[in-house]
Design a protein around this nucleic acid. Structure first.
Lengths: 333, 333
DNA sequence: GCGGTTGTTGCAAACGGTTGCAAGATAAGG
DNA sequence: CCTTATCTTGCAACCGTTTGCAACAACCGC
């Protein structure tokens, strides 16, 4: 059995409550006694039992991050940001990969609540039914969503400025002189991606009638980008520039172009979104919209910590800035 | 306050112990009573408090994964494998990024032990002092190392067959007819990478005197690969093939070659190690040695679960197979 | 010298479960 | 009908902390 405060108390000839107070540093214990206790704790190699502490205080000192998949570099970066912020505040982070499986997500929620996590960061909640969101809310655990969900004002969120990102991408291509631009994006109704498309279209409309834009929907991954690009090459031969709603799709576009013997940026300019590490390594390096992924993880934890400290404080929505990273996948039209 | 078993007991007019037994499914309770309890639990929306349970049973029902950095796709993949296996067994996974910082690693250990994690998967322990390893051992928490540490027989481990991987890479290049091969690797004394180098050299020696090999040490990342490649192009102009000890270094090599106007595989054949996702996306797709990353995570959790179930069972060392994935970065010499 | 502070410590009740043991009820066997 | 075995349930201790309250001593000012 491990050493407990009872052992220390016996060793020092004091009551456990004195030991507890000495260790947790709250005032009200004589300095001499405290030193004695501290020395004994060290000598006996005492490790406090956080579970017991958690039971007594109602705090588990852990947060959870529930995302689709850490293998997605975007989430890995978020996870690292969250983990660093949590570690700094002496919390630890439980990781859950829920894919986009509703059932799995709910199973996780229940398990995490049962474990008394002090706060929860969730990728997205958009797939959940009204009832499920209600159940979630009933748990009364501080919650922050990564990427704001439409219409869920009451839950804190951290998002990148997707609209602005889409706008920047569109503006950039237009400034380079492109007049026939395609936007490759995911399925309709996907909050984030929809925002990006809206921003993009704003830039297009601002440019007036001279610019022609087409939006193509498909799967929001490399394969989807590949498929859409192939289709586009056939149906839209006049396109000179492509903006994809994420980098993965851009990689698919690159593959399709290589297969068709076309070169970037000579035959087609390309702008991605996310700025995953790969984007800078690829040849040519991809121009893309940088999302502050690490910072999003950090911010989410900060909000959580604040909500834990002041449970009655309202929800907070943080919109983090994005920026266009110009590399070599675009050229003047 | 949340619903507890006491509430359910009151509701059903039975003792808490009966409720506990009904819920945890251990036999010894009348079926009718159990149904009544289950119904009440559901009706009241009861969520068991795992912290309390943990205190009583000494089990926290959570495992921890302590790695350098999730942003490294290798670890992200391992993490996902571990998480899936843990989830399936109704455990959850605490994630820790310790970089290679000893202090941070030790802080994590203590915190995790304090939290009564039931098992711990650790990236590497090689940087720790004797004393620290001893402290770790004293905690008596089931432990498995990702990548076996030299001379630490007493702690379970899961590793890829690095030696065999190095051998396969060397053999492949030799079979293609290369006679002047460079191996770019990390600092000396790095367990894994050393094994890879050894395997590579075995292939070289097996081929007899006709094959000339040079081993270059540097940083085990993209930048290191870049630097070493530049140096090599100057000092070893006769080299026709390169084997890097990981994919990241290979990406650095590619960058250096592009800068020098050289083409892969025409001017130089290249083999990496790891098979990160990026390797297949790059142009040209990289020939590399596949490490079963996901499976390593899974295996680590399985070992942990076994050790938790039978604490007196000895350590287990699992060596997972690797395979050469031939893509388009090599050609006949 | 006395009442009132202030500071230090101990006592004991939580926190929400689990579990060994005993008691009572019921059924089976002789 | 009594004994014994089997089921079902309750009681209470325990897991390792925290924390409100009371007790006590020392010190203060008057």
């Amino acid at each position: 059995m491990r050493v407990t405060i009872h052992d220390i108390a016996r060793e020092c000839g004091v009551n456990v409550s004195t030991v507890s107070r000495s260790l947790s540093g709250s005032y009200g214990v004589n300095d001499e006694t405290r030193q004695k206790v501290l020395a004994a704790a060290k000598r006996l190699n005492y490790v406090p039992n956080r579970v017991a502490r958690g039971l007594a205080t109602g705090r588990s000192q852990s947060l959870a991050l529930l995302i689709s998949d850490v293998r997605n570099p975007f989430f890995a970066e978020v996870a690292r940001g969250a983990e660093d912020a949590a570690f700094a505040a002496d919390y630890d982070l439980i990781l859950g990969n829920a894919d986009l499986d509703r059932e799995r997500q709910m199973r996780y929620f229940r398990s995490l609540v049962a474990k008394q996590v002090d706060g929860l960061i969730v990728n997205s909640v958009s797939g959940l039914s009204e009832e499920e969101v209600e159940e979630l809310r009933a748990y009364r655990v501080p919650l922050v969503l990564l990427n704001r969900s439409e219409g869920v004002q009451s839950i804190s969120s951290v998002s990148a400025d997707n609209f602005q990102g889409g706008f920047l991408a569109g503006q950039h291509l237009i400034e380079l002189g492109h007049r026939n631009i395609a936007h490759l994006t995911g399925p309709r109704q996907h909050g984030n991606l929809t925002e990006r498309a809206k921003g993009f279209l704003k830039a297009v409309h601002q440019a007036g009638n001279s610019v022609h834009a087409v939006v193509i929907h498909g799967d929001q991954n490399q394969q989807g980008g590949y498929t859409m690009a192939r289709k586009m090459l056939l149906s839209q031969p006049g396109v000179t520039a492509v903006f994809t709603a994420n980098d993965a799709m851009a990689f698919g576009v690159i593959r399709a172009l290589i297969e068709n013997g076309k070169k970037i940026p000579d035959d087609l300019s390309l702008v991605g979104f996310d700025n995953v590490e790969l984007a800078s390594i690829l040849q040519p390096p991809l121009t893309t919209v940088h999302q502050p992924k690490y910072e999003m993880g950090e911010a989410a934890v900060q909000i959580l910590l604040r909500q834990i400290a002041r449970p009655d404080s309202g929800p907070e929505h943080r919109l983090l800035g994005v920026q266009l990273v110009e590399r070599e996948s675009c050229r003047k039209a």
